[in-house]
Design a binder for these strands. Structure first.
Lengths: 208, 208
DNA sequence: CCAAGTCTTAACCATACAGTTAAAGCGTAC
DNA sequence: GTACGCTTTAACTGTATGGTTAAGACTTGG
């Protein structure tokens, strides 16, 4: 039976290591991350990381899988909702994603970097299943197009454009900062403005 | 005076090393790239890489700087053109960027990954100058908005949305492939379709 | 042929890193 | 108080890697 030796029992320490791994992998990227950094960050030593998780790549896979399994589902939960109008979906996705990426600015860049470094890891870890259902959204777009409310557009094009528009400031932040003149405070204003402007832009793009 | 020992003179070998470095750094990323791979790819040995370029990071910086210095200028050459209508700019940017990224599918992901791994490198290598001029485009947007041709929008929002929409399929290709069901041939169709659909979507997004 | 520059060979060094191990410390439960 | 389990300490191994060096081979211009 487990015997907590201090105020930090086994599961808490396990979690602290995982949290530290999240921070280090997210900011440095898997290839450049060092297990020693993770140990320092967690306030433990390398031996304990090995004790709980075995190898670095197992830990890295856990972190990567976690973010893949939360990033897109959060998106598709809104887009796939059968009880929400298309217009509301656009507003909600933009708001939800902007909130999330402002709170966790490294996730988008991390995902892009990891996907680039080892594209196969995605299917290896989350399987080859087609992902969350887009049928609902597809039908919605078709119906609205039929009714003349929007121009016809494929789900893929719509989703890609929406994600791209929302995510780009976080994936290429340094480039945005430098070439669009968005240092420090200007970036905050830019993001606040984007929250307002983007839904209108996307919805206008759909209009017939 | 230079003495070419074979059909490959000094500058050619230098270039072959640089080309190999491009291939390796672009696909693996700087952190995971190995100088030995570059040597193998170039058909030379590590000693010669040192002979010409010194350190790995010097080579990596050269590759990174090259892509930064060609990626955005190519974009801004179109966007900043004073003798082109806004509508034409959108068409031209989409066409030009789609052509480029289809021909060089790793560049966008590489840039995103490198920017994430070491954001400071951008300003360190290309300086802190504000980048190519956006004044022309800004004025164009303002004038067209004044004339009631488009809704008012800031240059930053416009450019970010445009870049995001064009670049996202290449930056997050594995995610697009898996979750939008775009394996193999479907991706080609998707990109071909995007070429047609995107300019219309963006221009519709601008309409008042 | 000689000199100069290009390139290879085959080492080598120092370092960083992931992974491993053995022993002991230490708190809690019984 | 003792057994059990969490955790640390402090080493060590093996290997990968970046960087360096010295000697010589090859090619060509003069």
């Amino acid at each position: 039976m487990p015997t907590p030796p201090s105020e930090l029992d086994e599961s808490q320490t396990r979690q602290r290591i995982l949290d530290a791994a999240h921070r280090v992998f997210l900011t440095r990227g898997t290839a450049a991350a060092r297990t020693q950094h993770i140990a320092d960050e967690a306030g433990v030593n390398k031996a304990l990381i090995h004790y709980y998780y075995g190898t670095k790549s197992a830990l890295a896979d856990a972190v990567f899988a976690h973010h893949v399994r939360t990033f897109l589902p959060r998106l598709f939960a809104i887009l796939g909702d059968p009880d929400r109008y298309l217009e509301d979906k656009v507003h909600d996705v933009v708001r939800e994603q902007m909130d999330f990426h402002c709170a966790h600015p490294y996730v988008a860049g991390y995902l892009a970097a990891e996907l680039h470094a080892e594209p196969e890891r995605l299917t290896r870890l989350v399987g080859a299943h087609g992902g969350p259902p887009l049928d609902v959204l597809a039908r919605q777009l078709a119906v609205d197009a039929e009714a003349g409310l929007i121009r016809p557009i494929s789900v893929q094009q719509f989703v890609a454009t929406l994600i791209g528009a929302v995510v780009i400031p976080f994936v290429m932040r340094p480039i945005m900062t430098l070439f669009l003149g968005l240092e420090g405070e200007r970036m905050q204003e830019f993001l606040a403005e984007r929250r307002r402007v983007l839904p209108a832009f996307i919805l206008a793009g759909l209009r017939p």
